[in-house]
Design a protein around this nucleic acid. Structure first.
Length: 666
DNA sequence: GAGCACTGC
């Protein structure tokens, strides 16, 4: 362990200041604000040196060498994500066959950063610089030394290598977003540090959470491991702050509380357009309904009172849009026109829009909440946190000084908004990730429990796949699992409702949605995977490509864990059995006296209804199993299949024994 | 006869 090669680094010039609580250091470099000149014809090296993070290069390397954990607070545009991994490599942290890892919460960011770094280093992507995301491993063993990956992938790598021995440094980027995977990684990495004192962590976080990150990684003095001290390694974490390249954003608050934020957003946009100089506008609302409504209102305004609002190009932005519609948002507005983008939270973290000068912030977003008693996840419109509000405002200052209009009062911002949002881990069901982090004492059943943990899907889906291997219908079940993993394989939208409903009926199977998916997949396959075929049948071609991709991945995993790949041809009875084996806990029985299609769940007797998008809507079979619940004014079951109640006992005698003795199984 | 903020393995 002690043979690990440590690169020698000079002590930096800057000041190292001890925090009064001991341990936490702020290292203040010289704060010459770098000019924000655009990349001109400068060489890549020159460009790299112009980034704000460059003048902290020595400091960062010094801290990484001498501290187990370094926390970097970097604003957007500091260059930390692309530069720090390169500094580490230049300093020798990738020598001796070790790797440097840099994680991101999102796949797209992983790909983008990796290709940028490969370009800067002048190497081919997938050689010295590579990346890994689910379904895509662009790395070369023994060649790749800088590896970018999603935090979910790193978590999964821990299943095979719990101490992550091949990495010398792990940088967790965007840790302030507190995704479930990031949070679990933070916890596990802290444990790994005790066993691997030579491992270095870099946590990149936004200002506000930096202190709590540092507190988390500070080891208690009593429990400090003596061997770490012998290493000459300081176990107390350190915080280093790197300035960004953002411009000042002037904040304007509403003077009175706003009654209707859609209306207020529309008026504000019109006011900006009337009074403010050129520059695009970004409006944050909560969801598709709000956004479509305000796009409509603004366009009506453009039509009726052409004078004020001519020159406005109004564009919606949310994840449900087609690719072509999303791309419109990135195109530059014609000269003399002002672009107004009305968006969900997608523009707060996932997408970066250039040219935004004005931001209108409704103060709300849709957030997931989980009720562990009913085991139901809900999507609710809720106030955002101050951290979110700052993030939204920051979107106005990327190209030049901007303005942010908050549709709430300053008093509300200061006294009623929470400082930080509730981390995702506290708002979600943990079924999918808990199985990954159980240790040897967790008593996973053999072999099923271990196989379930190997498949990167919800445990119920995994169980269904494993059962299908024994039932001889794994080809079909893997197709169903792949379809369930994409959002929707149907094209939907205004104006084509009737046609798409009719198209769906052509594939409808009496057994329910799962078998309907098989029919669609069969048709798609027989058409030669044709996009025209999809178009004609109101099937989403991009979704079907994704289904193919996921399907191949699942087949590979199935083979690896020793499952039998076999088709049951047209025997849908075994398909239903396999679905039941996975989803027995979601069984429901029709309450016949109710005459309105009300079902009750066997587990918990909750009132549920078949979702109108299901092929079994209004068919109301006596016994069904659902894939998931959507919670609105009612609880709707999405993706439903008919079952035989005797299969329930067969599939899960341990689960339904009690119910049977209570005569709940009729 | 209803609707899906955003991610991820």
């Amino acid at each position: 362990m002690s043979q690990f090669w440590k690169p020698g680094t000079e002590r930096p010039q800057g000041r190292v200041v001890d925090d009064e609580e001991g341990g936490v250091l702020f290292l203040s470099g010289s704060h010459h604000s770098s000019s924000s000149s655009r990349y001109g014809y400068a060489s890549i090296d020159k460009q790299r040196q112009r980034l704000p993070v460059f003048k902290y290069r020595t400091a960062i390397l010094y801290l990484v060498e001498t501290r187990a954990t370094t926390i970097i607070v970097g604003e957007t545009g500091s260059g930390k994500t692309t530069q720090i991994p390169q500094y580490l490599k230049e300093a020798g942290w990738a020598a001796g066959g070790r790797l440097i890892a840099c994680t991101q919460p999102r796949r797209l960011a992983v790909q983008a950063v990796a290709s940028r770094v490969a370009e800067e280093m002048g190497v081919k992507l997938g050689e010295e610089v590579g990346y890994t995301i689910r379904f895509e491993d662009v790395t070369k063993p023994d060649v790749t030394v800088l590896k970018f990956l999603t935090d979910g992938v790193l978590l999964r790598e821990m299943m095979d290598d719990p101490l992550l021995t091949k990495y010398s440094v792990i940088m967790l980027d965007e840790a302030h977003e507190r995704s479930i995977s990031t949070d679990i990684l933070l916890g596990l990495l802290k444990k790994i540090q005790r066993r691997r004192p030579e491992l270095r962590l870099i946590i990149s976080s936004a200002t506000i959470e930096a202190k709590s990150m540092s507190d988390f990684f500070r080891m208690r003095k009593k429990r400090r491991e003596p061997e770490n001290e012998e290493h000459g390694l300081q176990v107390e974490p350190v915080i280093l702050s790197v300035e960004g390249r953002g411009f000042n954003v002037q904040i304007n608050y509403s003077e009175e509380p706003v009654q209707d934020y859609v209306q207020a957003a529309v008026s504000t946009v019109l006011l900006i357009h009337e009074r403010e100089p050129a520059g695009d506008v970004l409006v944050f609302l909560t969801g598709q309904d709000d956004i479509d409504a305000s796009v409509q209102l603004l366009n009506d305004e453009v039509q009726t009172t052409g004078k004020h609002s001519s020159g406005l190009i109004v564009l919606p932005l949310y994840s449900g849009l087609s690719r072509a519609e999303q791309e419109l948002v990135f195109s530059q507005a014609p000269r003399g026109k002002r672009k107004v983008i009305i968006s969900t939270n997608i523009a707060e973290t996932s997408l970066t829009l250039e040219g935004i000068v004005y931001v209108v912030d409704s103060g709300f977003s849709k957030q997931r909440f989980y009720n562990p008693i009913s085991d139901i996840e809900n999507l609710v419109v809720a106030p955002i946190s101050r951290a979110s509000a700052r993030q939204r405002a920051g979107r106005a200052g990327r190209v030049r000084p901007g303005k942010c209009y908050r549709l709430y009062t300053e008093e509300y911002f200061l006294n009623h908004m929470s400082n930080e949002g509730i981390p995702e881990i506290q708002r979600s069901s943990m079924v999918s990730c808990v199985i990954q982090v159980l240790d040897d004492d967790a008593k996973l059943t053999s072999p099923t429990g271990f196989q379930v943990a190997e498949i990167p899907l919800d445990p119920m889906v995994s169980k269904m796949i494993i059962a299908s291997s024994q039932l001889g219908c794994s080809e079909e079940i893997i197709t169903i699992a792949a379809v369930l993993s994409v959002q929707s394989i149907w094209i939907s939208g205004r104006g084509i409702q009737k046609e798409s409903d009719e198209a769906k009926l052509r594939f409808a199977a009496a057994e329910g949605d799962h078998v309907t998916f098989l029919n669609v997949y069969k048709g798609f396959h027989q058409s030669g995977k044709s996009s025209q075929w999809c178009h004609k049948n109101y099937v989403n071609y991009h979704a079907m490509r994704k289904v193919l991709e996921v399907r191949e991945q699942l087949k590979r995993i199935a083979k690896r864990i020793g499952l039998v790949l076999k088709s049951c041809e047209s025997d849908m009875q075994v398909v239903r059995k396999a679905v039941t084996a996975g989803f027995f806990a979601n069984a429901c029985h029709l309450e016949e006296y109710s005459h309105n299609g009300m079902y009750k769940t066997l587990r918990g007797s909750q009132e549920v209804y078949i979702h109108p998008s299901s092929v079994l809507f209004r068919v109301n079979p006596k016994w069904v199993i659902y894939n998931s619940l959507v919670s609105t004014d009612r609880q709707y079951m999405r993706n439903v299949i008919t079952i035989d109640p005797s299969c329930l006992l067969e599939a899960a005698p341990h689960f339904y024994q009690l119910q049977q003795s209570n005569h709940l199984l009729r």
